[in-house]
Nucleic acid binder design. Structure first.
Length: 430
RNA sequence: GCCGUUGUAGCUUAGCGGUAGAGCACUCGACUGUUAAUCGAGCGGUCGUCGGUUCAAAUCCGACCAACGGCGCCA
């Protein structure tokens, strides 16, 4: 049995081949029936006629319907009239299942496509999305594996909040209650005292009732935590990582990018270093250069991020946010304690924030003070505070929304198109 | 949490007070080179649900349900 891609080459012309897959299109003009077969590697047109089969066989094949499954054997011909330039003249076949009525066709509404995601997955577009997504997830792990990092697995059911917030999913737990993890950062920090450089790819959950093009309640969170490095070095690593991931997609998924209509030339421009702009400077530029109604102390809303990122063709770091705009664990800049040593990475073309990261407070006293400001109970965070009691060191880390990264790289209009089974405030099926 | 939009055949939709129409899919038929073929016929609808107004409601009003979109929050 062969795969469609490996037989679609000139040197196979005239050879006998066997393939299996699903009916992608079928057209009949009586004595000739064209069946376009799909497998995981591509599509190929197959010809059924009475030249190479009996009348009954030809009739049975001609009656097949979309997405019916079968295997065939026949002779492959180079033929310019076929959609991909190659065609199989069917000599024999076996039908696994003939479908009655496949519900997915052209002209689909959004709700229908989401309700039938388990079938829509088979479409060429979504197959392309899933192949690119696979490249992105692999490339992320590969980048860190080849740079001396260890992959670790934090818990998903947790009893401590990361942000101290109200956005946690509560789950019954033997008469008690636990939360689903919204970030693995604190657990990642526990590993750096032995492994020094660690990363994880794990799901995160946010119970926020967000209804936007880039929010999911369950999403894939790629996080890293690195001992001994500071904010600037963390950004050095991240921009090389993004450059690597995008380059891998360009290298491995040219065909899929074409199916999605993504401009490859724009992706080829994604090379480190990325611009680094201090928050205070960005506020000035926003007001003076782009006419945005922003002042120091404002957080970046969706409109602002869009307005800012359309001015760049590469991702851009925004650094040194005012202390009050971010949560307690960020390290205040020793030279200007009203700002913190942190960074957001905004994706270009209007996509906005894909990474949040920075340097963590590593002094016990300073961390305790900040937690008091946030009214966080020390008892719950005893293990996080212990990290500052025993061999504490400077360190930095980040969290990356992998689904958002996928959305930007593929230039999708909604994050739901970037993940196979999106979970949102109103959707948990299929 | 706030604001908005949409529910008509399996799917995409037209109709917007007076007998529910089309394209795709599916079924049957014609066609020896089709490119999401073409041509002919057929199948398929308690117009999201409940209630109200009216001689008459898919159409107007109300409530509910479902989904989608925007803001805030964030990755």
């Amino acid at each position: 049995m062969s795969q469609i891609k490996e037989i679609s080459i000139d040197s196979m012309d005239g050879k006998e081949v066997s393939v299996h897959g699903w009916v992608y299109r079928i057209r009949s003009s009586g004595k000739l029936t064209f069946i376009v077969l799909r497998d995981s590697t591509g599509i190929i047109q197959m010809l059924s006629s009475t030249r190479s089969m009996s009348e009954e066989q030809h009739k049975e094949l001609s009656s097949l319907t979309i997405e019916s499954s079968l295997e065939v054997s026949g002779i492959i011909h180079k033929d310019e009239r076929a959609p991909t330039g190659y065609e199989i003249e069917i000599k024999d076949y076996r039908i696994y299942q003939r479908n009655e009525n496949y519900p997915v066709s052209k002209d689909l509404g959004e709700e229908f496509m989401l309700d039938n995601r388990h079938l829509w997955l088979r479409s060429r577009e979504f197959t392309a999305v899933m192949k690119i997504r696979s490249t992105i997830f692999n490339a992320f792990a590969e980048f860190y594996n080849t740079n001396g990092y260890y992959q670790v697995q934090p818990p998903i059911m947790v009893s401590t909040a990361t942000e101290g917030g109200s956005t946690l999913f509560k789950v019954p737990f033997f008469g008690e209650e636990v939360s689903l993890s919204q970030s693995s950062q604190f657990y990642l920090e526990t590993f750096i005292y032995s492994l020094e450089k660690v990363y994880t790819i794990s799901p995160s959950f946010r119970a926020e009732k967000s209804r936007t093009f880039r929010h999911l309640t369950e999403y894939w969170h790629a996080e890293a935590e690195v001992a001994w490095i500071h904010n600037e070095e963390m950004m050095d690593i991240e921009e090389k990582m993004i450059e690597y991931i995008v380059a891998e997609v360009v290298k491995n998924n040219e065909e899929e990018l074409k199916i999605l209509g993504r401009d490859i030339e724009l992706l080829k421009k994604i090379k480190a270093p990325f611009p680094r702009i201090r928050y205070s400077k960005l506020m000035e530029m926003a007001k003076k250069d782009w006419g945005l109604d922003l002042k120091y102390g404002d957080d970046l809303g969706a409109d602002e991020e869009r307005a800012i990122t359309v001015h760049f063709d590469k991702p851009v770091f925004v650094t040194h946010f005012p202390t009050e705009l971010k949560t307690f664990y960020h390290l205040p800049d020793p030279e200007n304690p009203s700002e913190i040593l942190c960074h957001d990475l905004l994706a270009p073309e209007g996509y906005g924030e894909i990474v949040g990261g920075g340097e963590r407070i590593w002094d016990l006293k300073q961390l305790e003070e900040r937690m008091e400001e946030y009214n966080l109970p020390k008892e719950d965070y005893y293990w996080y505070l212990d990290l500052r009691k025993y061999g504490s060191i400077p360190h930095s880390g980040f969290g990356l929304g992998l689904d958002r990264l996928c959305m930007w790289i593929m230039k999708l209009s909604n994050i739901k198109e970037a993940i196979p089974y999106p979970r949102t405030i109103r959707r948990t099926r299929p």
